[in-house]
Write a protein that binds this DNA or RNA. Structure first.
Length: 501
RNA sequence: GGCGGCAUAGCCAAGAGGUAAGGCAGAGGUCUGCAAAACCUCUAUACCCCAGUUCGAAUCUGGGUGCCGCCUCCA
């Protein structure tokens, strides 16, 4: 499966708008791989451009220095976000031959003409012009607000090659020194690396016109074949309800947001929307996202703690004699299924609610299968990550019911099942999973972390003693003080657990 | 001015002809030494408004209103 996504024009710090396609395409790629597709993912850098040149002149540097700096910034930020690098990043400056070849081809076929040192694409020669953005050349002309170059035969024509101006980087070409126009690089590079008809082409919604429209015109005219099969356009970012744009100066720096909220919350916030929707950033919404994500993180942590908890090999399973237990409980290999439900009735319940209290392993298995199916169905339907996350919440509820049920007993067999829960959460949402919204476990190697672990163990041990002596005030004081320090203590049947808040 | 998109509970957000997912916040309950976490129950009998098509519309059509975007660099 070939995918080409328009990356960035590297001339300023990476902002949140850059992260939208990055995050969604990361999830899409990973999902497609999970589904067994072989994915070839190409992303470009338009590293020659008016804005880069302007910035370079402003700083008294080479355009290439500027481009390199911001390419590096972009890639670093993607790394911070846990986005897998593209299979190949392509750059305009490294594909001049190919770009010139395509322009030559367009000239030869009559789709482009030379005017002075420039080469323009002749829009009226391409009958389908406007088909992506749903516009006709007439409409476009009527609405044109830009000053038209006198060299153009038609106001809608756009530059394939721009003759060199003083102080600008330039390359040799059949039309003299110059550089490529915006648009042509994506045609040239996608065709070169993915062939004439690849599967998906992505980019921001704002690129539909003119960028992608022009890509289609160039590519289809050049190859005589249809271009990309599917267009996947990601939505744009607003900040407190206002469009975020360079010209308004309200761009949100990606690094700052990552520092404030962490990559997972940012991803979660984005992925709880459909990729095509507008993403409105505000503190309230990020807080909302943060809390929603916490629910998922908590259940995974709880399961992890249960899996890590030492269980005595076999004995423990039959131990609680004072409890009314289904006779077969804990028999290895028994799924519990109908028998457990029947036994619940036998317990002599007065309330229906008791049925739901049963920690029924079969229910857990069903929930796992269902969650994975729903997740797939959601992603299969136009990569509906919002629905996919809902399936994770459904699973979280089932898992919580299971592990918090009064009849829950932690046995080796139950741990095996719980490991499956962890595996699925990891695969679908883990750091290296499809959505990448669950944080990686704290790096165990760090010295501070080891110290904190040790101290917490000591403190919680002291509290356990206090509780055993029914010294509630001491136990509560420890818990309250820790809470003030940002550590939440929760008592569970397997002992106290703690987490940072 | 031309073109396009969107409008679903207090908030966020799926759903795109068959009777409204999920999360956050809120209320009540269960569990707990008390909490926390979790679970259960409740929280949209006008899905912006008005007409229409249909046995049936949040979903389709027409007309409004409001917001946003594109037409100029942007992801």
């Amino acid at each position: 499966m070939g995918i080409y996504v328009c990356g960035v024009t590297p001339y300023s710090d990476t902002h949140i708008g850059h992260l939208v396609p990055a995050v969604f395409w990361d999830a899409i790629r990973k999902y497609l791989k999970y589904r067994g597709y072989e994915v070839r993912f190409i992303q470009n850098f338009t590293d020659v451009d008016d804005k880069i040149i302007a910035r370079a002149n402003q700083e008294g540097r080479n355009a290439s220095e500027i481009a390199e700096r911001y390419v590096a910034d972009y890639l670093t930020v993607l790394g911070m976000m846990g986005v897998e690098p593209a299979d190949r990043y392509v750059k305009v400056t490294q594909e001049m031959e190919e770009i010139i070849r395509v322009i030559e081809g367009l000239v030869r076929k009559g789709y482009a003409y030379q005017a002075g040192g420039d080469v323009f694409y002749a829009v009226e020669k391409f009958p389908g012009y406007g088909k992506l953005s749903g516009r006709t050349p007439e409409e476009l002309e009527a609405g044109a607000r830009v000053e038209v170059s006198p060299l153009k035969r038609n106001p809608l024509d756009f530059a394939l090659w721009k003759g060199a101006k003083p102080g600008e980087p330039a390359w040799d070409s059949p039309w003299g020194k110059g550089r490529p126009g915006w648009h042509i690089e994506c045609s040239a590079m996608s065709l070169k690396y993915l062939g004439s008809r690849f599967d998906m082409h992505g980019g921001g919604l704002d690129l539909i016109f003119p960028h992608h429209e022009n890509e289609i015109a160039q590519s289809e005219a050049y190859t005589g074949e249809p271009f990309a099969r599917y267009w996947v356009h990601t939505g744009l970012v607003t900040v407190d309800g206002e469009k975020m744009s360079k010209s308004l100066g309200n761009s949100l720096a990606a690094r700052e947001l990552i520092r404030q909220w962490g990559p997972e919350v940012l991803k979660f916030f984005l992925l709880t929307n459909h990729y095509r929707s507008a993403f409105n950033f505000s503190v309230a919404e990020l807080e909302n996202a943060s809390r929603g994500l916490a629910r998922l993180v908590r259940v995974v942590e709880a399961v992890q703690a249960l899996v890590d908890h030492q269980v005595e090999p076999a004995r423990q399973e039959v131990e609680p004699a004072h409890q009314v237990e289904p006779a077969h409980q804990g028999v290895p290999g028994d799924t519990g299924g109908a028998g457990a439900v029947a036994a619940a009735g036998a317990v002599g319940t007065t309330e229906m609610a008791d049925l739901t209290d049963l920690a029924n392993p079969a229910d857990l298995d069903n929930a796992l299968a269902e969650a994975e199916n729903e997740f797939r169905a959601a992603m299969d339907d136009d990569f509906n990550t919002a629905l996919a996350i809902a399936s994770l919440h459904d699973l979280a509820r089932e898992v919580n019911r299971f592990i918090n049920a009064p009849s829950f007993r932690l046995t080796a067999e139950v741990q095996t099942r719980l490991r499956k829960v962890l595996r699925l959460f990891g695969e679908l949402a883990g750091k290296d999973g499809i959505l990448g919204i669950l944080p990686r476990e704290a790096p165990a190697g760090s010295r501070d972390e080891a110290l904190v672990e040790g101290l917490m163990e000591l403190i919680l041990d002291a509290r356990r003693s206090a509780k055993q002596a029914k010294d509630w005030s001491t136990a509560d004081r420890i818990r309250d003080t820790l809470k003030k320090l940002g550590v939440a203590v929760e008592d569970t049947p397997q002992g106290a657990r703690w987490r940072r808040t």
